[in-house]
């Protein structure tokens, strides 16, 4: 597949935020392919250091997709927010398409015999989390944003605080409460 120009992706992202639904349809395969190739390289290579891997994965996908010089977003924060949103959509679609859902087809679980590449709770079902997150948005919009930025966008506490224009202390508190709220929500579903 011919690589999309960074310019093209930037245009699509902008169109999508402006409310153009068809832009998302064009964006998704582009992001997916990029994710695919970056993920493969990350898995093949630096398996020894998974924090580095996460950052590499998220940052590389963004950096390769978006021509930063051409981004005339209002600011960096907006860019992060949009990216996290986009990533959420794409990851959920991916998980749904592969049937990585409750008990259906293999939940994301890492065997203990293998070196722990990714520390991951056995039942983190991404599709279910997305659903619970929607309910949380109804109760407390900002907390759901915190989760979106942290979990789907891969942002740090500090970056999240910057995007939401609140203190890091607030992000820490929101994050803590949001997690227990979501867990309770998920446990009630089963």
């Amino acid at each position: 597949m011919a690589l999309p120009s960074n310019h093209e992706v930037t245009q699509l992202l902008r169109a999508w935020t402006a409310g153009d639904k068809s832009a998302l349809e064009k964006l998704t395969p582009l992001v997916y392919d990029e994710l695919h190739s970056v993920a493969r390289r990350c898995m093949a290579g630096e398996r020894t250091d998974h924090t580095l891997q996460t950052t590499a994965l998220v940052n590389e996908v963004y950096l390769r997709l978006v021509d930063c010089g051409r981004v005339n977003w209002q600011d960096r924060a907006h860019f992060f927010a949009v990216s996290a949103q986009l990533m959420r959509r794409i990851l959920i679609d991916f998980a749904r398409s592969r049937g990585y859902q409750k008990r259906g087809g293999g939940t994301i679980q890492i065997s203990l015999d293998e070196a722990p590449l990714v520390s991951c709770e056995p039942d983190s079902d991404i599709v279910a989390i997305d659903g619970a997150l929607k309910s949380l948005a109804v109760v407390d919009e900002r907390k759901s944003k915190v989760v979106e930025l942290r979990f789907f966008g891969g942002l740090s506490i500090e970056e999240t605080a910057e995007v939401l224009r609140v203190s890091t202390e607030t992000v820490v508190r929101d994050w803590r409460l949001a997690k227990v709220w979501l867990l309770r929500e998920l446990s009630q579903e089963t």
Binding site: L35, V38, A39, C42, M43, H50, Q53, T54, L57, V58, V61, M87, R88, L91, F94, A95, I108, L117, V118, S119, C120, S124, I126, R150, F151, F152, G153, G154
Partner: peptide, 9 residues
């Protein structure tokens, strides 16, 4: 663990 990492694997 960020979602992208889980999916990435």
């Amino acid at each position: 663990t960020p979602a992208v990492e889980l999916i990435g694997e």
